[in-house]
Amino acid sequence: MNVFGHVLTNKVACGNSFNTLTSESSSEFVSNPYHKEFINDLLTSHMVGDFCVIGPRGCGKSVAVMRLAELLGYQVEPILLYQDMTSRDLVQQRVTNSKGDTSWHFSPLIVAALKGKMALLDGIHRLHHGTLAVLHRLLHDREIQLYDGKRLLRHDRYDLIKEETGETDEGMANIGIYRIHPSFRVVGLAGTTPNRGS
């Protein structure tokens, strides 16, 4: 990436491998000096952890984040949020088969956590604060208890428990413990209401 006349190369954990950050683009993204600086800010935020991009509708939040994901080699898991979404909808989905049996399925957010994808929470401003509360431990501690009793743990804690117990990944899954991929990131997109003046 070219920043202020200097070519920067950085290795960042993303997806299932380490990718070298380059300025090559296979998309239709058209860059200008503002975009380069903004993408650089997003990259810095990514290195620290999860982040949120706030701006008015149509200002290019999604495009900028998709460009960042492309640069880092991420698979993006887009999750469209809506006002009536519950915390259960956000992490697990209960489904019923043709025989009437019900089972829990991982939501796209949990799949992203397990596979090291970038979860793009589009419309995070629409969610009720009670729904957002379920994300607190996932974002801050990289840990979450699911509604069916399963548990996701930060990669290093998972690895330590696995080593101490001598379990395999399959054995850990059988007892309901899963590993959150170290590359997993959550990016929130929030809209703003234009100021109509006083």
Rank of each mutant, 00 (worst) to 15 (best):
V3M: 07
V7F: 10
V7I: 12
T9V: 14
N10M: 12
N10R: 14
K11M: 11
K11D: 10
K11H: 11
V12M: 07
V12K: 03
A13E: 11
A13N: 12
G15T: 03
N16H: 07
N16S: 14
N16D: 11
S17F: 07
T20W: 06
L21W: 04
L21H: 02
L21R: 09
S23N: 11
S23E: 14
E24D: 12
S31T: 14
S31H: 05
H35D: 08
K36N: 13
I39D: 07
L42P: 06
L43A: 04
L43F: 09
L43N: 03
V48E: 09
V53K: 00
P56E: 15
C59R: 01
G60K: 02
S62K: 12
A64H: 07
V65K: 00
L68T: 00
A69D: 00
A69W: 00
A69T: 00
E70Q: 04
L71F: 04
Q75K: 13
I79Q: 02
L80M: 09
L80H: 12
L81V: 04
Y82I: 04
Q83A: 12
Q83Y: 04
D84T: 14
D84L: 10
D89R: 03
L90P: 05
R94E: 13
V95W: 08
T96M: 14
K99S: 13
D101V: 07
D101I: 09
T102K: 11
T102A: 12
T102C: 10
S103M: 12
H105E: 14
H105K: 13
F106I: 05
F106Y: 14
L109N: 11
L109P: 08
L109A: 10
V111S: 15
A112C: 06
K117H: 15
K117I: 06
M118S: 02
M118A: 06
L120R: 03
L121M: 12
L121Q: 07
G123T: 08
H125D: 15
R126P: 03
H128D: 15
H129F: 12
G130N: 15
T131D: 03
T131V: 11
L132Q: 11
A133S: 15
V134P: 00
L135N: 05
H136I: 10
H136K: 13
H140N: 14
H140G: 08
E143Q: 13
Q145C: 08
L146W: 03
L146H: 06
D148G: 02
G149I: 00
L152D: 06
D156M: 01
R157S: 09
D159T: 06
I161W: 03
E163A: 13
E163P: 00
E164R: 13
T165K: 07
E167R: 12
D169N: 13
E170A: 15
E170L: 09
G171M: 08
G171D: 08
G171H: 05
A173C: 04
N174I: 03
N174V: 06
I175A: 08
G176L: 05
Y178N: 04
Y178P: 00
R179K: 15
R179G: 02
I180L: 07
P182Y: 00
V186H: 01
L189A: 02
A190N: 03
T192Q: 09
T193V: 14
P194R: 15
R196M: 11
S198R: 11
